[in-house]
Design a protein around this nucleic acid. Structure first.
Length: 256
DNA sequence: ATGCCGTGGAAACCACGA
């Protein structure tokens, strides 16, 4: 089973790129982030024609998450994280696909630090940790995939010294990620590529793609039984080089 | 400290991203 995550940066503006990649990669399930579209503007028909059932949680202009499943409808189990009723951002959706529970998340960016956006990021992280613990305790096979907006360690950043006070790399945020993983999750890409420089995002600015000045911020966390089935974990880097492409590349895992 | 690029929405500029 192949599961992917892709921050598309605008699902309608990016539709040709998304369809081209789906056709090429043939993932069984896909987590999308940054739809930047309200529910009624989600391209349901185009994805259905491409062979994918979908559930989505949109929002005007910003955020927005979706889960796609090849040849079937994902079975939705949750939308939104518990714990903050006044949170209006569409950043979490969860569904069962082929017997795997998939949580699709778009963690807040958090910049600038310090400030209310950074505080919101930390609160969101705490809510994610509480829910993740419940999922682990349930004993279900779980994959938590998406844009975490965190580079977990120095080798996940092209120039760590320049990112110390950025909301994607502040100690508090790296510690939050580490303590989430410590619940018993496996970081799939790091598990299979312990020492490699792997990036999933390259800013449009300053020729960051051409210089391979990237960040690893899109992650797969696997529950213990799913981790035992892990056979491949890769980044579809070439997609970042396409015309009118997202600033993120698709990331995927293959399970036995 | 800011723009560099790019998206979407509203209104010919702005908020936001990472």
């Amino acid at each position: 089973m192949k599961i992917a995550t892709y921050n598309v940066n605008g699902v309608n503006g990016r539709l040709p790129v998304l369809l081209r990649w789906l056709e090429e990669a043939q993932p069984d399930a896909v987590c999308l982030q940054e739809l930047k579209a309200p529910d009624e503007k989600f391209p349901e028909k185009a994805l259905e024609d491409a062979g994918y059932g979908a559930i989505w949680h949109g929002q005007k202009s910003w955020n927005g998450v979706a889960i796609l499943a090849r040849g079937k409808a994902p079975v939705e189990t949750r939308r939104g994280l518990p714990g903050e009723d006044e949170d209006t951002h569409s950043r979490y959706i969860e569904a069962a696909v082929n017997g795997v529970l998939i949580g699709c998340l778009y963690l807040p960016n958090g910049n600038p630090w310090p400030g209310p956006k950074f505080d919101y990021k930390l609160r969101w992280f705490e809510r994610l940790k509480r829910h993740a613990k419940d999922l682990l305790d349930s004993g279900a096979p779980v994959v938590l995939a998406g844009d975490y907006n965190v580079m977990p360690t120095d080798i996940d950043v092209y120039a760590p010294e320049r990112w110390q006070d950025d909301a994607l790399f502040r100690d508090e945020v790296r510690e939050a990620f580490a303590s989430l993983v410590a619940q018993g999750w496996t970081d799939a890409l790091r598990k299979l590529h312990p020492d490699e420089r792997i990036y999933t995002f390259w800013d449009y600015l300053r020729k960051r793609w051409e210089r391979n000045a990237g960040l690893r911020i899109d992650h797969f966390l696997l529950s213990p039984d799913v981790a035992k089935r892990l056979k491949q974990a890769e980044v579809d880097r070439h997609v970042r080089g396409w015309e009118k492409t997202s600033d993120h590349a698709p990331v995927w895992i293959a399970l036995r």
